[in-house]
Amino acid sequence: MRAFDYRRAHSPEDAARLTQAPEAMLIAGGTNLLDLMKLQVETPELLADIGRIGFAEIIDTDDGGLSIGALATNTAVAIHPRVRRDYPVLARAILAGATQQLRNRATTGGNLCQRTRCFYFTDIDQPCNKREPGSGCGAIGGVNKLHAVLGASDHCIATYPGDMAVAMAALDARVIIGAADGQQRSVPVRDFHRLPGDTPWRDNVLDPGEVILAVELPAPLEGMQIYRKVRERSSYAFALVSIAAVIAVENGAITRAELAFGGLAHKPWHDPRISELLVGSAPSAELFDRAADLLLESAEGQGDNDFKIPLARRALHAVLAQVMEQAA
């Protein structure tokens, strides 16, 4: 690990000020960042520790939703009584990720900002436009089993690796972002992560000098909540494909269908056309196929990850079949 200065931030504004310098980074749980620092993928000159600035509370909002402090751990969120009762898709997504040891340290803000697990990104001897702009993409034409089939570019085919944000995208949560001058802005989780385009080093819309303060969940939505994760082993593995779904059925017709997909793209994937197609229709295998057609309309395999296209279709069928079974 390269040498760095370590300082504790005392407030979000303090943290935001410290990270205005390009060589500075924030550390909270550290489970992803320290791993990357050991690999010298990240070489900050200043680490600003935000672990003790508060912002770990999970509190009810005035509109019946829930505000999750950026420093609330994955564990604290997954075991929270209201998350379990009103947002089970979020509890399930978090529990499906990592291990208890990691979830005990990993924070909500840090989890949103976690980096891709692309093999070329984490190996400093390989080309990677995300790690070293202009060096090329080793994954294109390389080993790319875990990589994106939607929204990739000629510069980067990495995926966003997390589970938590996929559930938050289905729930249409918002990220509350603070700046050094105390100003705040809020961004839907669905728009927080970026597609790689020709600037793949930017994972999300956070600017230098901004910090995540909280994630706000809207008031609970009627319907079934499902998180389905397909992975190579039954625990402690990243998703090949995952689906977070909030779906309601009334009198034989779908009345709500909020779906988000993990493992397919550089961000949790949400396509509003799927909801438009499903809502108002009676569920059927043929309808589900059309939903999968929409989802995968522009899907493009890279070789090793070609399997993700039929796998996403099957996973979507499985989730919708589970809904029909529970609705019956």
Binding site: Y6, I27, G30, T31, L34, D35, D49, G51, T75, Q100, Q101, L102, N104, R105
Partner: peptide, 13 residues
């Protein structure tokens, strides 16, 4: 009271 990976934590934290 919580189990963690001590390798992914700095002592100063």
């Amino acid at each position: 009271g919580l189990r963690i990976n001590s390798c992914l934590s700095l002592a100063v934290m």
